[in-house]
C-alpha cells in the first residue's frame, strides 16, 4: 500500500513537473492611447476597448495601457500595467483594480500638443519583449497623425520583431476629408514602417462595435 501511494504521488509530481513553459501560450498587450489635441475626447471608446481586453485576457497574460504624449518613450507614460496571476480568482481581482485605475486616468486626462507614436511604439516593444509572452500585440488607439515636438528625434529604423500592430479607431482629419489620399498614404506609410521593423502583422480596426475580435490573436 505504501508503494502504491508512493507511485501515485510520484505520478502526480511528474505530471505537474512536466508542465511546459506557460509564457509561450500567454499574450501580452500594450495599448497606446492618443491623448493629443481633440483625440483626447475619444477616451470613452478607449475605455471600452480596455474593458474588452480585460474581459478577454486570461490568467498569465499581460496588459499595459500607456498614453501618447509629446514624448512617449518613457515608463512614466504607462498608466497601468499588470501580469495576471495564474489563479483565476486573483486574476479577477487584478482586473478590477486595473479597471479602477483606468477610470481614474480617464477622468484626469489632459490633451497634449504633440503626438509621439514612434516613442510609444518603442516603449511598448520594450515592455512586450520583457514579458516574454508567446503573442505580443501593440494596440494603437490614435488617428496615426504623428506630430513631433522640437528636438524629438524619431526618424530612425525601429525594431518590432514578433509584434502584431493593431491600429484602432483611426479617425479621418479635416485634411483627410479634403484629400483622402493623405489618409491612405498615412496608413500605408505606417504599415510599411511597421512591417520593415519586423512586425508580424498589421491590422486596422475602425468598426469597434462589430470587429473587436480582430484585436487579439485567436488562440
Amino acid at each position: 500500500m505504501k508503494k502504491l501511494s508512493l507511485i501515485c504521488v510520484l505520478f502526480v509530481i511528474l505530471m505537474l513537473g512536466a508542465c511546459g513553459d506557460s509564457r509561450v501560450h500567454s499574450q501580452a498587450v500594450y495599448m497606446l492611447v492618443d491623448t493629443s489635441g481633440t483625440y483626447a475626447q475619444e477616451i470613452g471608446k478607449a475605455t471600452k476597448i480596455i474593458n474588452y481586453l480585460l474581459a478577454t485576457l486570461n490568467p498569465g497574460d499581460s496588459l499595459a495601457v500607456a498614453k501618447v504624449e509629446t514624448r512617449s518613450f518613457t515608463e512614466k507614460d504607462i498608466v497601468a500595467k499588470v501580469t495576471f496571476d495564474k489563479r483565476p480568482s486573483q486574476a479577477t481581482l487584478q482586473k478590477r483594480a486595473f479597471k479602477s485605475k483606468i477610470e481614474e486616468f480617464s477622468k484626469e486626462i489632459k490633451g497634449t500638443a504633440f503626438t509621439d507614436i514612434t516613442g510609444g511604439l518603442l516603449q511598448g516593444a520594450e515592455y512586450l519583449n520583457e514579458t516574454k509572452a508567446g503573442t505580443k500585440t501593440i494596440v494603437i488607439f490614435s488617428d496615426m497623425q504623428e506630430e513631433l515636438g522640437k528636438g524629438t528625434i524619431r526618424d530612425f529604423p525601429i525594431k518590432l520583431d514578433g509584434i502584431r500592430i493593431v491600429a484602432l479607431n483611426v479617425t479621418k482629419l479635416k485634411t483627410d476629408n479634403a484629400d483622402p489620399r493623405i489618409y491612405l498614404d498615412r496608413l500605408a506609410r505606417w504599415e510599411e514602417r511597421a512591417r520593415k521593423a519586423g512586425a508580424t502583422d498589421w491590422v486596422m480596426v475602425n468598426d469597434l462595435e462589430n470587429n473587436m475580435e480582430s484585436i487579439l490573436n485567436p488562440r
Binding site: G20, P59, K86, R87, P88, S89
Partner: peptide, 15 residues
Amino acid sequence: LPMSEMVGASDYIGD
C-alpha cells in the same frame, strides 16, 4: 476549472 486555481490556468503540458 477550479483545478486551475491550484495548478495555474496558464500552465501547459506540451502545446
